[in-house]
Design a protein around this nucleic acid. Structure first.
Lengths: 440, 440
DNA sequence: ATGTTGGCTAGAAGCCGACAA
DNA sequence: TTGTCGGCTTCTAGCCAACAT
């Protein structure tokens, strides 16, 4: 009862947006397109998010929407960032305005947010000791020194009160103390209240951030596998899929929700990134690639693999779609769920200089085949030759040759955006309704 | 972690269905149509449930579905009853098969379930003492004697262990003891675990039931106002509404979820009940009516009111719809949210013999006007004359005249169905896929 | 008949350094 | 540097009857 009241109050305040904290909670690999920029929306990927969220098999009879191709170019009209009331899961509400394909598009704004490199934040995956009722939270030394106010070490013991604010603008008080033999930083009083209120478990991650004026922010990120599979169905997945398709096919503004922790891949992609991947990147069966993935402990690492085929994921319903067009195998056994299907814009070239170059496949001996496909389905024909080379690759392994391919003389990976542009994202471009609040 | 594991196990078991417990948790006024029978489905009401569940204003641009009138006659092909994993909220999944209107329809099966009168169950709205950490649960004396096994009063004190099973087939052990001065029945050990696991608060209701073989069942029913407004949106309400309309308009089998605690009114109505209300009941402006409503403490009571107008709820989008066609005022100030719009099948005639008859309005002096409307929109014309008599009624008050109107010589209220027919519902009619399981 | 409260007690929560990885 | 544990203390949970309504 009291809990509800306090939430209600919070819900009514207009809240200061904290995009940085949202991104921290979303995970290290999540990027957001800029408001006002042009994006490519994939109803197919959107459907995958919906289906994954309600854990249902889809055996669907969709009416066809002739206006709706596998991808839809839109302008990101507005975006608001949110966090679920119950479990803090972050999601973004995006309003998309479909644009005519003929229209010439200014791509200047089409970059993604980048996490700030110099941010004053740290995240820690909780240990069993952190979450047990036996004690408090052990703060990594460097983390404490970076984000928390310095302690007065003349006191015995050195201690202070920390008040951290979460994505719902709720404040959580903690006692921060430096004690033990050897000395260490700890959060004691207040910690267990936080843990039980947020229902955190060992394996989940907490994020602490320091704002410009010294405020402390606090967010959570659940372990990936245990996302809560939205209970209480409102509609069948069939109805939902029909609804999202019909909404997109109407060629009017429509609104979608993007849940980065529930979705396997983003389904709203900056147009520039998409075009670069589709038109300016050499993709061919047998090609080596790399991709950054999130580990269990929410760090990231580059993984490598080989493209084994290029074909439609769903030839019946979504012919000539670029969504997850690539079939791949990975060099290492999968840590988390390792996708066997990827989209072209998700992968990058092997970055290191040529490592071990397999004699059978070199840049000169085998000319890579360009995959070029139309942006709008129907105005061309995508090349989807399914060359199964998995068996060959296995036979000729070790297969560690990487062809570095060039795109306009620079790396194919998306361009790096500095912190000034980040601020531009935060304050809005020329869009009149860049809503950057965070609601209840 | 452990919690999740145990839930997973439960989810995999095929569980014995307990329709009676489900109905208890749904509330005293909820009825379900029989599987195999014919029903009228109201997309408009369905949309209201969806909109209410996600707490969004609908400002919607729906494509029109010419095949879809405001009501759709279907056969209830199958129905499964469920309870939400998180908060035990009950919901029913119904598969509806649209039928041709020409088709002659056997109405024999078109009754609703009735709660069993002689059921061995009791429900109690929790007091602050019941939910505090200070103690246990005070069992009303008659309740304890009715549903729990008799205690051995030779022991000092008389006590036993009760194991009660909830809708997820999870067992909850309690210590049942008879003590105190004066003596009373209490549940002590185990009670607080249950309270905190279900996150029950004062004002919520628990239901205990005794099965035929002495098993004890246990369900919960949350206070109405605090239903959890489904967090984490998947789709906008617009998309959802489009989806549900498109699904219904396809004229194929479609599946809907009915959440009796979230919906203001049922939107799947037995065809017989609907026909009776539409074709065989006299409804007129100024008519007195009664309606049974649920109180805060989950008891029911008859409330009375007056019909002040008959008009389309949404003349633009749903012209000639019978959904909430009646405007009413109530005699008493509203206890819970008292609807000012009702559908014809929701109300009953004033049951008592003529009470105080207002001289201006009597059966003979003012001939009630029959409201007769087509079942399918388009094949006729509904009479929607908005006679605003509210002002008149207020002036001439006290206005307590009730015209008892007759329908085929019997009361207009839905017919009573005995417990044999209840069993028939439970075991299915001639449908091959009457699924009566309760999933995770 | 049953809701609330004070008294009492058992047990969990939670603070501490020791110790180990 | 930091995860876990045993020791100890504090406080809450929870059982009881008294008392009130």
């Amino acid at each position: 009862m009291m809990l509800n009241d306090s939430f209600d109050v919070v819900a009514e305040e207009k809240q200061v947006f904290n995009a940085a904290l949202w991104l921290e909670c979303a995970g290290p690999l999540v990027r957001l397109p800029t408001v006002g920029s042009h994006v490519v929306y994939f109803p197919q990927g959107h459907g995958e998010q919906v289906a994954a969220s309600i854990q249902t098999e889809v055996e669907l009879q969709i009416p066809s929407y002739p206006n709706l191709g596998p991808q839809l170019i839109c302008q990101l009209h507005s975006m608001t960032l949110h966090a679920d009331q119950e479990n803090d899961e972050v999601y973004a509400q995006m309003m998309l305005q479909p644009v005519k394909k003929e229209q010439d598009i200014n791509l200047e704004l089409d970059f993604e947010t980048q996490t700030m490199q110099s941010k004053l934040s740290f995240s820690k995956t909780l240990t069993p000791s952190d979450t047990s009722t036996h004690g408090g939270f052990s703060i990594p030394r460097r983390a404490a020194e970076k984000v928390f106010p310095p302690l007065d070490f003349t006191k015995q013991p050195p201690a202070q009160e920390i008040i951290a604010r979460d994505l719902h603008n709720k404040n959580w008080p903690f006692r921060h103390i430096y004690r033990g033999q050897p000395r260490r930083h700890l959060l004691t009083t207040g910690w267990s209240v936080f843990i039980s209120a947020k229902r955190l478990q060992a394996g989940d991650t907490v994020v602490f951030m320091r704002g410009e004026n010294g405020e402390i922010y606090l967010g959570t990120r659940r372990q990936h596998n245990q996302l809560p599979a939205t209970s209480l169905p409102l509609l069948t997945s069939d109805s939902m899929l029909i609804g999202l398709l019909a909404a997109a096919a109407m060629n009017k503004r429509f609104t979608i929700y993007y849940k980065p922790r529930a979705s396997i891949s983003a389904f709203v992609i900056p147009l520039a990134k998409y075009n670069k991947a589709i038109f300016q990147t050499q993709i061919y069966t047998g090609m080596r690639f790399r991709m950054e993935l999130e580990n269990e402990d929410s760090t990231t690492r580059n993984y490598t693999g080989t493209i084994t085929g290029i074909s439609d994921l769903d030839p019946i319903r979504w012919p000539n779609s670029h969504w997850r067009k690539l079939r791949v195998i990975w060099d290492e056994s999968p840590a988390r769920q390792r996708q066997l299907r990827l989209s072209m814009w998700e992968i990058g070239p092997i970055s290191a200089p040529l490592l071990i170059c397999h004699p059978l496949l070199s840049f000169s001996s085998k000319r890579p085949k360009l995959v070029q496909a139309p942006v709008q389905a129907g105005s061309g024909q995508a090349i989807g030759d399914e060359e199964e080379v998995e068996s060959m690759i296995k036979k000729t392994s070790p297969f560690a040759c990487g062809d570095e391919h060039l795109i306009n003389g620079q790396n194919a990976h998306s361009s790096i955006v500095g912190s000034e542009q980040w601020m531009q994202f935060q304050q809005g471009s020329n869009s009149e309704s860049l809503t950057v609040q965070l609601d209840n």
